[in-house]
Design a binder for these strands. Structure first.
Lengths: 201, 201
DNA sequence: ATTAATACAGACTATCTAGTTTGTAAATGC
DNA sequence: GCATTTACAAACTAGATAGTCTGTATTAAT
């Protein structure tokens, strides 16, 4: 009868997910180590056993939590797409449900950290740049395939389409959050369709 | 011979502009009152004589400094525009010079504050929403006029064009800052031109 | 079974930070 | 010219916060 009284992996995970929520709602600078401990019911000993510092925790949140969210929220849903000019807008239309409430209230966690920390700390900058890069690369591949399939004009650089779309999404989510109104998201959807007409082969 | 040894308006202005720079580079939460005082050479007495609190200073920066920057950077240049589908891209192309270096490094001050503070404090939220609103209104008017002039398709809501553009700009500046590379700005320009083709009457 | 390493608890500390208080010289009002 | 208000200087305070240190029970190694 081996009673498990400790579970270090789970402890680390609790710290990580709670820190992710706190960073998402208050920013990295606004996140308080003490508050994370209060919410997890752990103590200082646990925290500094698993993480060297607050900064290292921030890096871990980016490397593990935010990367995960990027993949599940934005990259995974691309799998089923045949023609992005048709299917991508459908994806966006289904997002009000799919996008968690926390994102509408607190914005995109990746963009938040990018804004707050990219010019403050190189560790953050490199990580957010890497995540944006993988996002852009995924969209680039999507549109390159659509070009070879003949859905999308071949004379436009797929990478620029991808960049533009990521920018549009981040900017729209940002204003959506600032205004606390769904108008920006509606405009984003309708105008992406206009833009996509210009991409048709 | 009246020697002016005090200039309260100038003192307040110095606090305001320095605070603006500090908020722009470190965020509102990252801005330190002590650092503003160090840079201005003033003391606590001066600060709390002119501003009730750090929060009130933040509001004043939004109301005076950031509004001013919005107008000079984004709204004033619209004056000379005849056909936005042609002239707006030209404006963006001239912006690498026009956009100050601080903006490329630290992002858009309005968007930064929106991201950081909109969900934290209602005073900030209302102010950033108001500024976004005036930005969107200015672009809306621009495109409504272009519609009556027959440059732009009349079956598209000018307000949605305006919202979309503001979103595109904010998102692109955001990624520009995060990546520390001009690529996003180039993609933004080229794809806005594609989008504008879809707006032609 | 003994030893060593791991995974914490919990008290403690040094520093930083917004804000206060007191004092005073300059400006303004009358 | 005098009183009052304004515009600061500068020392001080209370509270918060990241990080440390010591101790100890659990787990793993041999």
């Amino acid at each position: 009868m081996k009673k498990v009284t400790r579970n270090p992996q789970q402890t680390r995970q609790k710290l990580l997910t709670t820190a992710f929520e706190e960073i998402h709602s208050h920013g990295f600078q606004g996140m308080r180590v003490d508050e994370v401990l209060r919410k997890t019911g752990l103590q200082k000993g646990a925290f500094y056993h698993h993480f060297k510092s607050k900064l290292e925790l921030g890096y871990a949140v980016l490397d593990e939590q935010i990367q995960l969210m990027l993949e599940t929220t934005w990259l995974e849903p691309l799998k089923g797409i045949e023609n992005p000019l048709i299917d991508f807008p459908k994806l966006l239309a289904s997002h009000p449900d799919r996008i968690p409430r926390s994102m509408r209230v607190h914005g995109c966690p990746l963009n938040n950290l990018a804004q707050e920390m990219a010019s403050q700390d190189d560790g953050f900058q490199q990580r957010v740049a890497g995540l944006f890069d993988s996002w852009i690369k995924a969209y680039t591949q999507l549109f390159e395939e659509a070009q070879t399939k003949g859905y999308v004009r071949a004379d436009i650089d797929a990478a620029e389409i991808a960049r533009f779309l990521v920018g549009v999404l981040e900017g729209s989510i940002s204003i959506l959050k600032a205004e606390r109104s769904p108008q920006q998201w509606l405009a984003c959807q309708s105008q992406i369709e206009v833009y996509f007409k210009g991409l048709q082969a």
